[in-house]
Structures are given as structure tokens and as C-alpha cells.
Nucleic acid binder design. Sequence first.
DNA 1: TGCTTTTGCATTTTT
DNA 2: TGCAAAAGCA
Length: 806
Amino acid sequence: MNGFDETDAFEAAIPLSQRAMAARPQPYLDDLNPAQRAAVLALDGPVLMLAGAGTGKTKALTSRIVHLLATGKARPNEILAVTFTNKAAREMKERVARMLGQSVEGMPWMGTFHSISVKILRRHAELAGLKSNFTILDTDDQLRLMKQLIVAANIDEKRWPARMLAGLIDSWKNRAWTPAKVPSSEASAYNNRGTELYQQYQDRLRALNACDFGDLLLHVVTLFQAHPDILAQYQRWLKYILVDEYQDTNVAQYLWLRLLAQAHRNICCVGDDDQSIYGWRGAEVGNILRFEKDFPGAEVVRLEQNYRSTEHILAAASGVISGNSDRLGKTLWTEAKGGEKVRLIGHWDGEEEARWIGDEVEALQRGSRSMEAQSLDHMAILVRASHQMRAFEDRFLTIGLPYRVIGGPRFYERLEIRDAMAYFRLAVSPDDDLAFERVVNTPKRGLGDKAQQEIQKTARASGMSLLEGARELLARGGIGGKGAGQLRAFVDGVDRWHAAILNARPEVADAVIEPMVPDAVPQSDMGHVRLAEVILEESGYTSMWQNDKTPEAAGRLENLKELVKALEQFDSLQGFLEHVSLIMENDTEEAAEKVTIMTLHGAKGLEFPVVFLPGWEDGLFPSQRSMNESGQKGLEEERRLAYVGITRAERLCTISFAANRRVYGQWQSQLPSRFIDELPVPHVDVLTPPGLYGGGYGAAGMGGGSRIEERATKADVYNSPGWRRLQDRSATRPISQPRESKQQVIDLDAVSSFTEGDRVFHTKFGYGTVAAIEGDKLDIAFDKAGVKKIIARFVVPAHEADDVPF
DNA sequence: TGCTTTTGCATTTTT
DNA sequence: TGCAAAAGCA
């Protein structure tokens, strides 16, 4: 048992001289506005800081920490400061350090819910039925485990997918329900077998000495509930609690906090109910709405002065969010007057929208608008769903506009990285069965389903790990032919690597707590880095990719190299594994200037001078699914998402929608988002239909390039049903010209305007792609009709043809 | 076992 | 439409 050695966290060196701090003047207070100062000064008792977008919440939060230290109310190791993301935790650390003028190594309780939970849980693992060196499973492992249970339970995995079970169990854990506590109202979940499988899953996890993410919080909560003495110790230690993004807490996190805070009640929650956008993953807006009831006598401070956006942008955002009920209510204001109104523009279809935004980005980059030239880094396109990104990527690729997509696959989620990590896990703990399964036949060792099932059976029969099972199977010759030799080599390899780890650092044999984030100087022994290379070499994993001739192989080897390099910053393999299981991020900040494309969710907490918000169409945004599944609640969350989107913009915010959009390959006519009607008219500029300048088919300047500057004089144009206007537009928009002249336009430009790869439409053959060009004849690969040779003037660019009948 | 064809499906995502 | 996973085939 490793009870309270009181080593790292509690007895950590306290780098600050309390007396010096207390005597020092407090210049950080002068930097704050009255509301911020009030939030900082109210150190004792419960405080709810309602911080609107861009109101300097992090500043207030960090000042508060500094103030706690400066007044001597708390020592650095007595402050619990919780965030959701590692990024937020890092930022807070950096800012506190900067304000103090020294490092925050003495603040061990500043981190994410999960990282702090791990720290607590490792100390008391045995009380949760685990060993302190438990592993943290990733989603992959989780699903694999559940699949096994589902198969074992004779459930048709088609009808009841593992994903569904995973989601269900996750939602239960978010509500802090252990299997025993799942209410009977949930009994019908997952074909009536949800609770049963949940129990089995937890049993399996315990047997594997593993946790999933939900467990980290859940175990801590149940631990605190079952052991008041332990809870009391933490309550005594953690005198002051600060919580960021409180509106995003789920029930488990809420209980976690309440348990820790209930003794001294020095809890300061910072959040914005209007920015609660994670209800679908368990966040309870109710937590923040209920704060004053939970903590009677709480001081509520509103930060409403906004330092980010222009008044028009704020007014537009306020107008939209005011449509929600159940708000705590805030009114953002700014001293900055003037600026551009929020721009609103409708487009014919999604492609045109992408084209127009691309052109706008370029115009802004050149500085040809009323704004000085803007770096691409200052511009962002924020979409509701990631599939919307494609249109922009396509367009930006064709015009050569550098962009970055945030939210792609992460480094640590890549196949090769997970494989390599599984090898490391196996080396660290050879009884990690999930890791074993993952790599026992990667690279191919001739161990197919049959051989693996034999191993499983042997292991299960004598209740040992898969590695031991394999060992025994080999010993009694239960496995034949070529697989045997390779399995032998694999088992020996794992033994060797494990021995190497024990050798290098004998003291970690029983998994003493490793520092969570290994700061600063790595130890001089390069043992584990070399060992990692050796593992990848000896296992044949590296050569597997070297022999692979697919185009991705080179990249994968690169990634592996990067992984090994990342190891250098840690002082052991297990320290690294711990870090990675909690920190799944890839923040490769590239130097080159690029426009950012990301989801609205991903944009929370960020800001950009110029923001584009495309796809404001009912069904897409607000998302139909959200409304179907969660009704009014869903709609309100979507509205908050709109609010988040608008408030990301500092100076220029452009909202757009398209009349037609291809949804799963089908053309659909779209209605402008209902949120558009909620934009307050005086703060919106309605742009008339865009001209086509530099558009696709070589007709630069043709359609009257300056049309873009025209603005509707009647601001309420968009109050009329938007789609009617769009119908009108379909008749008058410059590029289509009056119908009769269309043919002529094509005649003039057909030959030069098509290039290979263009999408075209033919009245008889339908849609196709230009495969080759010979003079005025095109080889076109039609989607339905095969390849045909067509005279150019008989086809039109595909987007020209998309006059969807109303 | 590995490749090709077919089918089914399709928000938002952190830890 | 386009992708990923599963079935089907050599």
C-alpha cells in the first residue's frame, strides 16, 4: 500500500517566500477592471464568476491565484485549480508563472480533472480494487474489450454495436453511476442488457488493472464517498479551489468538486452558461445555473466588459443568445465603438460559398477591404460539422490558399503510434493483455485467429495473462509449425525488454508514482530511448514499415521517429506512457501563415480578427439531429454554439448560407438558419448577391466584378423568407445571366474554361468529370453513362446546372 | 491470409 | 457522395 508518504505534492518545495510576497505591493490588482477585481478579492467563501466571452476571465483567474499566494491565504500546494483541457492548464500555469516571475513547480494541484484524479487514484488505488500502476485505456482498447464482452454475451454486434455500448457506459459514468447505481429506468438500455454488460466491463477492467477515462473521475468520487477520512485529508490540504469552464462540468465532476469543497467552501467557479456547448457529452448547464443554491451565500460576479470584439459583433451575438431561456443573464459591452457590422450573405450553393470566402480571404490578405492587410493567421472559418470543411479545402487547394485544419486525426491516435505504444506498454507491464492482443500478430507472425484463441483459452484456463498463456502453450507444445517459433521469439522479446526496464530503474518495478508531467531536465540515462528503438527493431515493427511500399509507409516511419524523439523528454517509458494516456494532443505549431478551418466546438476559447461562419442553414445549423434528439434543449445548445461562433470574431464576422447544398450526394434546397432571423438588424450588413470575380470558368471580370460592394439599402431584406430572395437571385445572378444568354457564354469560353478534372453536366448523360481535352472536344467520364467524347459547348460546368427545382 | 467488392452509414470531442 | 468496415473471393 502506498498511503500518504506525503512526498511530492504536499511537501513540495515552496519556491515563494511568503513574507516577501505579502509585503510586496500588488500591482496585478491595478490591471483589473472593477468586476475582475471584485472576483479576485473575494477569496473566502463560494464565488461564481460569470465571465462572458472575451471578458478577461483567465486574467481574473490567474490574478486570483496570485492574490491567494500574495496574501498568504494559501501556499502553492494548497490551491486546487482545475481545467478541462491540458491546453487550458498549461496556459494557466504559464500565466501564473509569468505574474509571479517564477515557476509554478510548487503548484502540484493545477491541472485537468483527469490528471488530478489520476494523482489521487494512484495513491489509493487499492481502495478502488486496482494496483497503483493501473493503465489508462484509450478508446480503441475500450472498444476492443467491449466487443469481446458482446460476443461472449451472444449479442448480435450488428444491431447492438460496441460503440453504442461504449457511449452508454460513458454517459452513465458521466453521471457518476456505478453499475450498482444505474437506476432501473435505464434497464431497457442496450437491449435490456446494458447494466449487465456495464458490470462485466468493470470487472474486466479491474482484472486488467485498467481504467477508462470515465473511471478516473468515478473512482475518485466513490472513493471519497466511501472513505470520509481520506476525503477529509484532501479537504484539509486543498484550502482553495478554482474551476475553469464550470458550465462544462458533468455530474461526476460536479460531485468531485462538491465533495472537496464542502468543508471549507472556498470554491470559485468560472464559467459562462451561454457558452455551454458540450451537453451532448454529459455537461450539465444546470451545474452553473444551480450554483447559488448549492453554495448559499455565494458571491456572484459578472464580467461583462468585453475586450475582444466590436460593438456590432457583440450586439449580434447578444441578439442571438437572447432567444434562449434559462440564462443567468449577462450583457456584454465594450468601449470600442464603431467597426464593421456583421456581414450576411447568401449563396447559390456550397461551392459558391467556398469560392466567395476564398476570394474574401485573399482580398483581406491583400488589404483591399476597408481593413488593413490581414495575416492568414488572423482568419478562421468555423463550421458546424467537419464534413463542411471539405468544400473549403477543395477550393483553397485549387486557388493555392494555405490553410490548416484543426481537429484532424491526432498524432497519438495514429495506427503506427498506437502499435508502438502497445509494444512499450507490454515492455512496461507484460500482463497488459490489450496491448498483447494488439501487437502479437503485428507484424505478421503467422498467428491468426486460431492461434490467438488458443492463447486466450490457455490463459483463461489458469487465470493468467495472455503472455503467460502463450508461454505455457509453447511449453506444452500446444501450438504448431511456423507460428510457434515466432511466438517464442515474441515472448522472449517481451521478457528481455521488461528485464531491461527493471534493470535500468529497479525502483519502478512496483510502479511508484511517476511525476505526471516530467518537467525540465531529463535524466542523463538515455536507456529508455535506446530501449524503445531496440523494441521497435527487435519486434520487426520498424522493418514492417520499411518493407511496406504503400505511400503512407514513409510518413509512418517518420512518425515513429518522432515518437522516439518525444521520449527524450521523459525519464522512463512508463512516465511517457502516463503522459500520453492523459495528453492526447498534437500542437504542431507551423510557422507558415495559414487560414484556419475548424469546427465551432474546436474554436471555443479562441479568437480571430476575421471570422467566417458558413453554412447557416436550418438542418445544418441548427443541426437537425440535435433538434430531433434533444428538442428545445438541443436548439438552445445550438444557439449557444452560434453565440460562441460570433464572439470568436474581433473585428469582422461574416455569416453565410447557401440555397442549395449537397447532402450525402443528394442536392437539397436549404432554408437560411433561423438564427439569421435573430441577428439584430441595425448591426448587420446584408451583402447583395456576390459577383463572380476570378470565379471558376475563366470569366474574370465578366459578370461585373464590383457588385460585391453593393449593399442592400433595406436592412430587413432577410426578414422576408430568405429562400424566396434566393429564388429571385437564381434568375438574376450575374453568372447564369438570363437563361438564353447562357449558351452564348459557354460558346465563348467553353474551350479555355474547362480543365481536366472539372465537373460538368450534360443534359442527356448527366454529371461527369473532364478526363481529357482535345481542342473543343472533351473526353468526359460520366458518373452514370461512362466515358464519352463531347463537344465542349454541349456541357456546362456542373455547378451551373444545379438549378434545383423548387 | 490478404486482396477486392459490397454494404451501410453519415454532428459536435476531451480526457 | 465518399468512406470505412465487413463480407466475399482466390
